[in-house]
């Protein structure tokens, strides 16, 4: 089908300016010299990329990818890509860092020694990871996390005196919006429900209800373009 016959969304960004010849987005991975036999046990490729879609890093390994490190010269190519000369957005990397801490807190909840009281059950952990991953992918502010016994964890956001609590269990999510005076809204959804087939939409609507205004997500890439994990 010829291109011109279609009703398409066009995005064109071009720059005639001669000022910014140097790369503005250079992300180099820290190099860890690891004494373990498998060098790839160190940090993998970048994990939380900028979703504006205009940079990526890639690691190319030489043919000795599985060779032991000891005594063998090892060479790696790190490719850093920058599409254009825009100023990088720092908030997304901060968000990624905050979510990393959330992940660590989740991990700790699986490691409590006093089993049966605070240690969360594996299915709860899996569900909480999924929800947290979806929140991050949609640039939600990082929630606080509370332990609620072995069968659920609670994510919490505050907006003034209003609170949104997302209670994540093995088979359902419950959202509760409250003010100091009363519970304002409550919603409970089983994972088998259709609403959860697109969790990002569900979470957006929950947050919108919490804020009492439409949520405009700060997504800089096109909505139809799934963000890149690695490239």
């Amino acid at each position: 089908m010829p291109f011109r016959e279609l009703n398409e969304k066009l995005v064109l960004i071009s720059k005639g300016c001669d000022m910014f010849k140097s790369m503005t987005k250079v992300y180099l991975q820290p190099l860890l010299v690891d004494s373990s036999p498998d060098p790839l046990k160190s940090s993998p490729s970048p994990l939380y990329p900028d979703n504006s879609g205009n940079y990526s890093t890639t690691r190319q390994l030489d043919s000795s990818v599985s060779a032991p490190l000891y005594g063998v010269p090892r060479v790696e190519n790190q490719i850093v890509r920058s599409t254009f000369s825009s100023v990088p957005v720092i908030s997304q990397s901060e968000l990624a860092h905050e979510y990393k801490e959330l992940g660590e807190a989740l991990n700790e909840m699986t490691e409590f020694e006093e089993e049966g009281k605070w240690k969360i059950e594996p299915p709860v952990y899996d569900a909480a990871r999924y929800v947290a991953g979806t929140l991050l992918a949609n640039f939600f502010p990082t929630p606080r996390i509370f332990n609620h016994g072995p069968r659920s964890v609670v994510f919490n956001w505050s907006q003034g005196t209003r609170n949104l609590y997302l209670t994540i269990s093995a088979d359902r999510i419950a959202a509760l919006i409250s003010s100091p005076e009363r519970i304002q809204r409550r919603m409970e959804i089983a994972y088998s429900s259709r609403e959860l087939l697109d969790p990002s939409r569900l979470l957006t609507s929950i947050r919108s209800a919490h804020l009492e205004k439409p949520v405009v997500l700060a997504v800089s890439s096109t909505a139809s373009d799934p963000p890149e994990l690695v490239d």
């Binding site: 010269p73 890509r81 254009f84």
Partner: peptide, 14 residues
Amino acid sequence: SMDRFQVVTISISG
């Protein structure tokens, strides 16, 4: 897109 790449070659000896 026009992309700029930096290829960083890192050598690590045994």
